[in-house]
Amino acid sequence: MNRLLTRAVAGATLVSALLVLFTPRPFAAAGGLLLGFLLPGAALTQALFPVRVLTRIERLVLAPALSLATLVLGGLLLYVCRAPLGRVSWTALTAGVTVLALIATTIPRLRSTGGAAEDVTTTGDIRPARVVAAPQEVPGMAEAHTILMQVVPAENEATVAARDKAQRRKLIRQLLPLVLVVAILGGAGWLSLSTSQSTYDTTVTTLSASPPAPADADGNRTVVLKATGLLDQDAPYKVTVSPVAAGTKASRRITIDANGEWTETVTVPADSRVTVGLYRSGDDSAYRTVSIAATE
């Protein structure tokens, strides 16, 4: 990881942490996804494998894999340390691991800069010397008198730039169909989500009673009745209670609140089985029914 990339990861970590901690959901989601799935693993990968021993694919795999591992093992560590697992602690964990890994990444580089570890290019740029493809000694081959190493010929900068540009254009052309892929998949997702929600979202009209309270001195008990999912087009609703204790109406027209609900506490005799019915406008039989058994 070069300095620019290191700084970019460090900056992204800082920004992500701030987004997670101090911004509303859409921004926090972006920062959280980076901290959860990418940044710790990317930094750890570079800290563990600073030289090119991994392929692009392996680096691509390790970034999310080590990020997930950070969440699992780091979460256990937080638990052992008795730290509560919440937004702050998860943020501190992921950002902290990322920063530590970045620091670990820079240490070998700092060491290597002590000698002729950097390479001055023709343009004057200083590049880490490790990027020069130096030969690697194979154990057991010290006596062999063959050296196989790689060097790179100097190229005209203009040629290189032109070639890079052509390669970028080719890559863009190749990847252009992926825009269509994203559009198709997005459309398919919208279709699935909308149809699933529309078929699921059905208003459910319920009538319920809370578990009855113990009988009082008069042999009565109170029950909280509740109706939900009441629709304006079925109004007015009626609730009947049978039998009822003295002073309690056996039937009443109920008033629906803004949420389409109704709640009332009624007093019923403890020694009788009580039946409560909910009627829509025009119903002859109860639309919903609950019953409370008599106590012994």
Partner: peptide, 28 residues
């Protein structure tokens, strides 16, 4: 002479670079 072979990683299409302090890369 020391025999050295630059390791490469399958799929990477690139050799592995090693720290420069091991052996300086020869130039043409």
């Amino acid at each position: 002479a020391v025999t050295a072979i630059i390791p490469v990683v399958p799929g990477a299409q690139e050799p592995t670079a090693t720290p420069a302090e091991t052996t300086p890369a020869p130039v043409k």
